[in-house]
Computed example of a mutant assay.
Amino acid sequence: MLIMKTESPCVRQHIIDTAKPIILGKGYAAVGLSEILSAADVPKGSFYHYFKSKDAFGEALLEHYFDDYLAWIDALLADDGTPAAERLMRYWQGWGNHQACDKRESKCLVVKLGGEVSDLSEAMREALNRGTAAVVRRLAACIEAGQADGSLATIDDAHAAAETLYQMWLGATLLSKIRRDDSPLRAALQSTRQLLHLA
């Protein structure tokens, strides 16, 4: 009797999980499909079963990254009885710690790929745009919660403040990569405290 082998949906996730640290190390354009498939030990046919192109794969990689990242933010910023300002500062301190460490898997995929792929793939640019907008919305909500519980001073536009902070931290992370030290991240933390009137 012939038994047909069916491909597990886990194969799709396995390809994404295997590719992420490789792309975090080398970038998107420098990594070919053959390298990803060899590392994942998956035949090319399986790749095209789950992704119609490398760009579709890149979009799925970013969507998965943001799904995980947003779940982490939601857990970190959730009301646990501590003031919202404290929860917000935990986020920024965690960002600085993750980006300053040597673990490749903890690095920011937005910083790594944002400048590279936004001109190469509209689908990937849109995935980055959707994901970063969702991050900013969560930060703005936490700022508003801080104003409501009295742990943050009044800020006229919480969303604009969240956008400014997020942009500053993305820039600081990029500068840390360029300088190979964490001084831009430490400066961003100090500036965050000042902008939120927590200094």
Rank of each mutant, 00 (worst) to 15 (best):
T173K: 06
D68R: 12
F57H: 01
D74A: 15
K177F: 11
A172W: 04
G146Y: 10
G45P: 07
L76S: 01
R104E: 05
E144I: 10
R12S: 12
L70F: 07
D17I: 09
S46A: 15
D181W: 00
V136S: 06
A133Y: 04
L128C: 04
A78V: 03
L152F: 07
V31S: 05
A158E: 11
L61H: 03
L33D: 06
D17V: 05
I178T: 01
T18W: 06
T173W: 07
Y69N: 03
L109M: 13
R125P: 09
A78P: 00
V135F: 03
D102W: 08
S183V: 14
A60C: 09
A162W: 00
F66G: 03
A19V: 06
E7P: 04
D74W: 12
P43Q: 14
D119H: 13
A134P: 04
Y69I: 04
E86H: 04
G45C: 11
L175I: 07
A172Y: 04
L88C: 06
A158D: 03
D80K: 00
F57K: 02
M89Y: 02
A30G: 07
G81R: 14
G25V: 11
A134T: 08
G115Y: 05
E59D: 01
L62V: 12
K103M: 13
V135E: 11
F47D: 05
Y69T: 01
D79F: 10
W72R: 07
D67M: 09
L88E: 08
T132M: 08
Q93F: 00
Y28V: 12
K5D: 06
K112G: 03
D68S: 07
H197I: 04
A187Y: 09
W92A: 02
C101Y: 09
C101Q: 14
K44A: 14
L120D: 08
K177Y: 11
L37C: 08
Q99P: 08
V117M: 03
E105S: 02
A39I: 13
D102S: 13
